[in-house]
């Protein structure tokens, strides 16, 4: 049963042949990507080694403060990542809303997941808490990025429609309803789609990892189903909070549409 193959240094080194093959291909094709490929391979390696040792330390010295610290770091990274991914100018107010929805949405879902679904004890047990939270945060980050892009873009593009609706007596909420709904929809769509292909088109990374490290496929599947539903919940909650609060940043207290580029 215990036939887990621990990869040796040389075995891992052998896997880098794929990087060399890729470098070779882009070189021949004249695609100027060598630098990025090298940097991302090195970053991936160093980041994972670092994470591995940090996790090793935390697993051996489990303490709620460590767990909380890691969660905070993950949240901060995820929030900055959202700002970076959205290729639009974001106002300070909307950035605050993004941070607020990410933090509250993911933490609420994680707590529910940890305390009710898997009933973990102690609750901060890092071996469970950290990877599960990481997955919820990561997926929520992807979802909310799409939602933010869609909302901000939609409001700028439909400026005239929104203004005309306001002139007819619409509240900001009515005037932006369609855009807000579409933003929410585009935020949750990838998660819904990924559930459809689950287990057939691809084996999710977490499940693959568990199976490779010796868990029974059934255990792996149980966790995968639970985590998928957790992800769905977290993405929905985060995006719902975001769109509910986000559209309001485009209006002042007199229900006037305020867009940044009013300098023409």
């Amino acid at each position: 049963m215990n036939s887990i193959i621990n990869l040796g240094l040389w075995q891992i080194a052998a896997a880098y042949i794929f990087v060399i093959i890729l470098l070779f291909i882009v070189k021949i094709k004249g695609i100027p990507r060598e630098k990025e490929i090298l940097i991302s391979s090195i970053r991936m390696t160093l980041q994972l080694i670092l994470t591995g040792y940090i996790l090793l330390y935390i697993f051996d010295n489990s303490h709620p403060l460590y767990t909380i610290l890691i969660i905070v770091i993950m949240e901060v990274f995820a929030i900055y990542n959202v700002f970076k991914r959205v290729k639009l100018d974001l106002s300070m107010n909307i950035k605050k809303i993004i941070a607020l929805s990410m933090a509250s949405g993911t933490i609420l879902s994680v707590l529910y997941f940890i305390l009710v679904v898997i009933n973990l004890s102690p609750w901060y047990e890092p071996r469970y808490f950290i990877p599960l939270t990481g997955m919820l945060i990561g997926n929520s980050m992807t979802g909310i990025s799409l939602g933010v892009s869609r909302l901000v873009d939609g409001i700028h593009k439909e400026k005239h429609l929104i203004e005309s609706a306001l002139m007819l007596g619409a509240t900001p909420k009515m005037a932006t309803k369609e855009i807000v709904d579409k933003a929410f929809d585009s935020a949750i769509l990838p998660t819904i789609n990924s559930m459809v292909g689950m287990g057939i088109v691809f084996l999710p990374g977490m499940m693959t990892g568990q199976i490779l490290s010796g868990a029974s496929p059934i255990t792996a599947i149980e966790y995968q189903i639970a985590i998928m539903l957790g992800i769905l919940g977290s993405v929905s909650l985060t995006s719902a909070i975001f769109v509910q609060l986000g559209y309001k940043t485009f209006f002042n207290e007199d229900s006037q549409l305020i867009l940044e580029e009013e300098s023409n």
Partner: peptide, 10 residues
């Protein structure tokens, strides 16, 4: 504003 705009429609 909303109440005003419902009386003064543009």
């Amino acid at each position: 504003s909303i109440e005003l705009r419902r009386k003064v429609v543009m």
